[in-house]
Design a protein around this nucleic acid. Sequence first.
DNA 1: CACAATGGTTAAGAACATGTACTATATGTG
DNA 2: CACATATAGTACATGTTCTTAACCATTGTG
Lengths: 158, 158
Amino acid sequence: MESKQELIKSTIHDLIRVAKMYSRIEELPIKVHEGLEVTTREAHTIQTVGENELMSVTELSSYFGITKSAASQMVTRLVKKNFLLKKQAPHSNKEFQLSLTELGWLAFKAHEEFHGKDMLELLKRLSTFSISQIATLSVLLETISGIMEKRLNERLKK
Amino acid sequence: MESKQELIKSTIHDLIRVAKMYSRIEELPIKVHEGLEVTTREAHTIQTVGENELMSVTELSSYFGITKSAASQMVTRLVKKNFLLKKQAPHSNKEFQLSLTELGWLAFKAHEEFHGKDMLELLKRLSTFSISQIATLSVLLETISGIMEKRLNERLKK
DNA sequence: CACAATGGTTAAGAACATGTACTATATGTG
DNA sequence: CACATATAGTACATGTTCTTAACCATTGTG
């Protein structure tokens, strides 16, 4: 079964290639509008807050798997740049609730659109494949992500 | 064809999930041996030099898509840490040829093994699928990487 | 109430990137 | 040949993002 092994290996190679390209695309700064760009991290923070309004700084930090300190600094910067709002939580005097300003939503949408174009193209292309083929892809990805998740947890624990 | 669209969307979502997990795994530092770790960037530089011995600083920089300056700094650091060797090129007095020291090869192997475990597991799991299923995955990945490559080139040109 | 846990901040510094300005070497053209 | 220009590489200042460690304020619990 040599050829099957070879096929699998080259497929894994392709997968890694795609993953690498994805992270390179993710690294590009996002243009909010003429003269205003946002770094990747900023965009991701904005995206996360947009999708989970009222989350706290600590929640944000555990979401990204970074320290509270790092999250706090990021939030401070984004508040200063007028993308984020930090309000005292109603139920506690030590927690804050994060939300997006108008400018924040603008950046949120810019980021969404940035990926949206690729998504549309992908959708269009994948549509030419059969349902069962796509289902197969889905199952395989499921399998792969299962393995990765396992490894990730293993390493993070230590 | 609503359900097909939904299937495609959730598959794309899985793909992104895998890509994200991959980059998170890639971000973990590599342990060369007890008491000696290597950052991701260092590991990648070592890997690249190991796979392309005698490459120059400029080649390294264009390989990673970073500036010559950044590559030079990385090389300087790795030479100082005794992972890399920088020799005058025989055909030119302005170029250098990079290669790995013994310690460099140790780190190279550590990094390879780090991924090797995942690869083995993946190989084992994918082996349970049929050749035609894997071939489908391969074709789809091909398609996806084509789209990504296009986008990447578009954005990088500007 | 005292004290530990929790939420958050600040300061110092490491890793990695960029931009700019610079040196030294190579090369092509009048 | 001489000069302009291109190429290889480095140094330095600066920016982003992260960690660690020390810290304050609030809150929950024995």
